[in-house]
Simulated assay, not measured.
Amino acid sequence: MMNVYWSALGVVSLTLLGACSQPSSSSEADAPAHSARLAMCGDGLAEGCVEAVSDTKGLIYSATDGGYEFRLLALEDGAELQRFGEEHGNAVSGPSLEDLDQDGDLELIIPDFTGNVNTVYRIWQQVSDARFEPAGEVSGFDLTPDVQTGLIGISSRGSAVQYSYTTHVLTEDGLVLVYQLDADYADAACVLTQGPAFEASSHDADLLLNGCEAEL
């Protein structure tokens, strides 16, 4: 039913392990210090373990009553560099890390509340020294980076016949709207709303509208 315009473009405390035995080889002696000191996540951010967000820093989180607590740690010795919290409601998924704007730095995505099929996602971005700051929030059922444009896109549904696709660019001031494209299949109509960042983008308003209307 939906083409590219709507489809998927898309702590518990830090665990310090016991003292390690004397390394038996030079390769073990040269291993990074954090591999022996921190409980590192195996595949993606998970509660109670550290996920690297840069060569020297990692993120760990724990669930609290109605929220999350995050800590940014130095991978070398586990020193705490930043601590912050964020609320969450009934979202079924947990926090994750993804490079939403394709700049090489991971963004923290925190699902908050899910209603109907849409979820509110709170986005935190890395700033100087790999620290995190809130960038804003988006709502929809599919939050995915557009690898060709570097924009952050999310599809949402207003009803059985009403869909939206919204794109943002991530700036030093947070999320800035590029455009929102609304489609009503009952009325066979599309509406394009241009955001503050539309003019600087590579998009053409007529092409977006024509592509949307061709699918109705």
Score class of each variant (00 low, 15 high):
Asp101Glu: 02
Phe132Ala: 00
Gly115His: 11
Val50Leu: 03
His88Tyr: 15
Thr114Glu: 12
Glu98Ile: 09
Arg122Glu: 10
Asn90Cys: 06
Phe70Tyr: 10
Gln125His: 10
Ser96Tyr: 03
His88Val: 09
Gly104Ser: 08
Glu76Phe: 09
Gln126Tyr: 09
Gln102Arg: 15
Asp112Cys: 11
Gln102Ser: 15
Pro134His: 06
Asp101Tyr: 05
Leu97Lys: 04
Cys49Arg: 01
Gly94Ser: 13
Gln126Cys: 09
Gln102Val: 15
Gln125Tyr: 08
Ser54Ala: 07
Cys49His: 02
Asn118Trp: 07
Asn116Ser: 14
Tyr61Gly: 02
Gly115Tyr: 11
Gly48Asp: 07
Arg83Trp: 06
Ser62Gly: 15
Asp112Tyr: 13
Pro95Asn: 11
Pro111Phe: 10
Asp65Gly: 10
Asp101Pro: 03
Leu106Asn: 01
Gly85Met: 14
Ala91Cys: 10
Tyr121Gln: 08
Tyr68Asn: 09
Pro134Ala: 06
Ala52Lys: 08
Gly104Leu: 11
Arg71Pro: 00
Gln125Phe: 10
Pro111Tyr: 08
Asn90Met: 07
Leu106Pro: 01
Leu73Ala: 12
Glu51Lys: 04
Gly136Ile: 09
Gly48Gln: 08
Val138Thr: 12
Arg131Asn: 09
Arg122Thr: 12
Arg131His: 11
Ala74Asp: 14
Val53Met: 07
Ala63Val: 14
Val50Met: 04
Leu59Arg: 01
Glu133Asp: 10
Glu80Asp: 11
Arg83Val: 15
Ala91Glu: 05
Glu86Asp: 14
Val117Met: 13
Thr114Gln: 05
Val127Pro: 00
Asn118Asp: 15
Thr56Tyr: 05
Phe132Arg: 01
Gly104Cys: 09
Glu69Lys: 13
Leu73Gly: 00
Leu81Asp: 03
Ile60Cys: 10
Leu73Val: 15
Val120Gln: 12
Leu73Glu: 05
Leu106Tyr: 05
Gly104Phe: 02
Cys49Ser: 06
Ala130Gln: 11
Ala52Pro: 01
Leu106Glu: 08
Gly85Arg: 15
Glu51His: 06
